[in-house]
């Protein structure tokens, strides 16, 4: 038996929550992407030759899309969960006839929607401003979906474990942002020394960025199938973790 109405209600609350503060949750990603295009792209493009046969601005777009997608997806679930804990709203969910799986899924869907919305909007910015070609729109959407879902789940794990905003900010600043930058948003890893290239293979975000870059530009440092499998693997791993932790209630009940 599934509490469908409960699942739907919590999902729509999670989606409604970030849309109600779109100035914090949707607009900033768009502005920063436009800034990246203007500053990094148009100024550096004069000095940097084409990478893998495409202009520099074009080259960084897929990475920007992916970075926006995964940070938005993960911060939606992590901040919403922590907020619920700190503002005494969590008891409303935990005393309702909702299962741990239903609560976890509702949160994950909410974060995945935010990730997708942000990713697609930045993609549109690219299409409108610099005529970004999208070679395989189905593949692009598939990557956006998998990465949104995976990082939304990861955010839910973080939100359950964290006890303060400080701890969340730490994970964001010390892990997610560096891993995104080092995953090759702004460069091809082939430009790196050998040891740094080898290190990049341990960075999951490297595969996400190169996967979506392939579906948009048909250029990639890694094979698209490897990227796809990594995305699927991360999705399964983080979803299971988020659900198991929620089911156990270990970080949210006494």
């Amino acid at each position: 038996m599934v509490n469908w109405i409960g699942l739907y209600t919590l999902t729509s609350r999670e989606v409604g929550r970030f849309f109600s503060v779109y100035r914090q949750t949707v607009i900033p990603g768009l502005i920063s992407s436009v800034l990246y295009i203007l500053i990094f792209g148009f100024t550096l493009e004069q000095r940097i030759s084409e990478i893998q046969g495409v202009s520099y601005t074009m080259f960084i777009m897929p990475g920007l899309i992916m970075m926006n997608t995964l940070t938005n997806a993960s911060s939606n679930t992590s901040s919403s969960m922590l907020q619920m804990k700190l503002l005494q709203q969590l008891p409303d969910l935990l005393t309702a006839p909702l299962s741990g799986i239903e609560i976890a899924l509702a949160y994950i869907i909410g974060g995945a929607v935010r990730g997708m919305v942000n990713g697609i909007l930045v993609l549109l910015v690219g299409v409108l401003l610099i005529d970004l070609p999208v070679h395989d729109i189905g593949g692009t959407l598939l990557f956006l979906f998998l990465v949104s879902w995976a990082f939304s789940s990861m955010g839910l794990v973080m939100g359950q474990i964290a006890e303060s905003w400080d701890q969340l900010a730490m994970i964001q600043n010390f892990f997610l942002t560096p891993l995104s930058f080092l995953g090759g948003v702004f460069y091809s890893i082939k430009m790196l020394p050998n040891w740094a290239q080898s290190l990049s293979y341990f960075n999951p975000i490297y595969y996400m960025i190169n996967g979506i870059r392939y579906t948009i530009l048909e250029k990639s440092d890694s094979s698209v199938m490897t990227s796809l499998w990594m995305a699927v693997l991360l999705t399964i791993l983080f979803t299971s973790l988020a659900i198991l932790l929620m089911k156990s209630g270990k970080r949210i009940k006494q």
């Binding site: 509490n3 109405i5 409960g6 739907y8 209600t9 919590l10 609350r13 409303d92 309702a96 006839p97």
Partner: peptide
């Protein structure tokens, strides 16, 4: 309140 009702399966 609508959310709360929804958690309890009431549309």
């Amino acid at each position: 309140l609508f959310f709360q009702a929804g958690y309890y399966g009431i549309n």
